[in-house]
């Protein structure tokens, strides 16, 4: 078995369980990213960790919400940033694969009770797709045990990470509905890798809302 971060052989304890284990991908003990799960009280709107569980400053200022609420799995700290950068900017498709069970479990904790859920990954533009050859949101969505439907498309814009907070908030909506897809009847959960200002997710939610979907939630890997 090779470690997915340092690409060297990692020591593996041979046991009955490891013999039956088909999964060949994992991190070695030194590289295992120290991700912190979001536990305890959170902002009921955006899922940010709040001490008293009140609505956070950003969510209070936001007007005309079409998103019901967002929930996230991990803190967006250095370890998480590094791992996501490895996946998104070094184009390492399998960087997140060992977290599959944890992500699926985390999703079910928040949205397990919703019936007839459809997952909609936040899209990337064709230009970015040609560069990266995969969509990291679709990758996360594929780890969750629910049907996935690519409802949205995106015009090409600059990378979010290179923009300041103000620039991000003032952005025009880059998303539009893909033609020829029948709209699902149940609630929709938008999937993305990270929620920082929330602009992306709210833009996507607005498009879905105008298309006529009433219940929209979102789930991101990091917050």
């Amino acid at each position: 078995m090779k470690c997915l971060i340092c690409f060297t052989d990692c020591d593996q304890v041979v046991s009955w369980r490891s013999l039956g284990n088909r999964q060949r991908l994992g991190y070695c003990a030194d590289c295992e990213p120290k991700l912190k799960k979001l536990t305890g009280l959170v902002c009921p709107d955006c899922g940010r960790s709040m001490l008293a569980g009140e609505v956070c400053h950003d969510c209070r200022e936001r007007k005309g919400k079409s998103l019901s609420y967002n929930r996230s799995l991990y803190h967006y700290d250095e370890a998480c940033k590094e791992l996501l950068a490895l996946c998104k900017y070094r184009y390492h498709y399998h960087a997140l694969t060992p977290l599959k069970r944890e992500i699926n479990h985390g999703f079910l904790q928040h949205y397990g009770k919703l019936k007839r859920v459809t997952l909609v990954p936040v899209p990337v533009s064709t230009e970015r797709m040609e560069e990266r050859l995969f969509n990291q949101s679709a990758l996360i969505a594929s780890m969750i045990n629910r049907p996935v439907l690519a409802l949205l498309d995106k015009h090409h814009t600059e990378k979010q990470a290179l923009k300041t907070r103000k620039e991000r908030l003032d952005l025009a909506n880059p998303f539009y509905l893909t033609e020829g897809n029948p709209l699902p009847k149940g609630p929709i959960v938008l999937i993305d890798d990270v929620y920082t200002t929330g602009t992306t997710i709210h833009h996507a939610a607005n498009v879905l809302k105008t298309a006529g979907i009433s219940e929209i939630y979102s789930f991101t890997l990091a917050r």
């Binding site: 090779k2 997915l4 991908l25 184009y91 498709y93 050859l133 995969f134 679709a138």
Partner: peptide
Amino acid sequence: ALFLPFPCGKCLKTDWYCLNCLKYERLASC
């Protein structure tokens, strides 16, 4: 063991990429 498959979003097939030289820039089979 250093080649991993992934579904390519451009050519819509299963492509492979090499982990050994990922630090220089990802190189996929397409």
